[in-house]
């Protein structure tokens, strides 16, 4: 298939690389892992340089998160899904600020990873429950102003891990839940530093009619 999605997995644990590759290949449509490696070089060289999505572990052996590598990847327009062991709100928000399309904790399973990868391949953001919690609990000064409904969606999604549940509880449709989540991410993309992925994300949202040009 010519338009088969491809991904590169950067993680220092071979078992994680193998597991992620397996999960992605099992989805429909499958995502092909074209390269994987224990450091970020595999995302810059060979097949990995052309992959649609980079799945990046933040802790590659060293104690400090590889935020610099994330920034460099995002600056050249790579779509990055951060896949981290740490459920740290600040780090998650920092990754979004840098331009990652998703921050996923390893406690969250295959389903979220596959959806996040697929969304990222299209330049869309994906907000897993833990990230929703981080956004709902965001107390920083420069956070965007979210509507009451958007906060409600974030909190409910964080609390239930089930979009069907959120839709049922708030009396809205599933797609409304998704568009709320996406609009929240657009609001986050509009603050802080600029990144090609963020611009693409906003452009996509305008194209979808999620936000108007005057909202910018």
């Amino acid at each position: 298939m010519a338009d088969e999605l491809s991904a590169v997995v950067v993680d220092d644990h071979p078992a994680v690389r193998a597991g992620v590759a397996y999960w992605l290949s099992c989805g429909t449509p499958p995502v092909k892992v074209v390269a994987s490696g224990e450091d970020v070089r595999s995302a810059w060289l060979g097949e990995g340089a052309k992959a649609d999505v980079v799945i990046l572990d933040l802790h590659l052996g060293g104690p400090a998160p590889v935020l610099g590598d994330l920034r460099r990847l995002v600056e050249v327009g790579r779509r990055v899904v951060v896949y981290s062991m740490r459920a740290d709100d600040d780090i998650a928000l920092q990754c979004l600020e840098l331009g990652a399309l998703c921050y996923l904790t390893k406690a969250e399973g295959a389903e979220h990873l596959v959806q996040a990868t697929r969304a990222a391949a299209q330049g869309r953001p994906y907000t897993p429950p833990s990230l929703a919690g981080a956004l709902a609990g965001d107390r920083s000064d420069h956070r965007p102003a979210l509507s009451a409904r958007e906060v409600e969606v974030l909190v409910e999604w964080f609390q239930s891990e089930s979009k069907e549940f959120v839709a049922q509880r708030l009396g809205i449709s599933l797609s409304t839940v998704n568009s709320h989540l996406e609009r929240i991410r657009v609001k986050y993309a509009l603050i802080g530093r600029e990144a090609p992925t963020k611009a693409a994300l906003v452009a996509r949202a305008i194209q979808d009619g999620l936000i108007g040009v005057d909202d910018l």
């Binding site: 609990g137 239930s160 549940f165």
Partner: peptide, 17 residues
């Protein structure tokens, strides 16, 4: 069961689904 603890700006929410 899903247990969540959310500490926002002015409230603490403990939820279980």
């Amino acid at each position: 069961a899903r247990v969540s603890l959310l500490r926002g700006e002015d409230e603490v929410r403990v939820a279980v689904v």
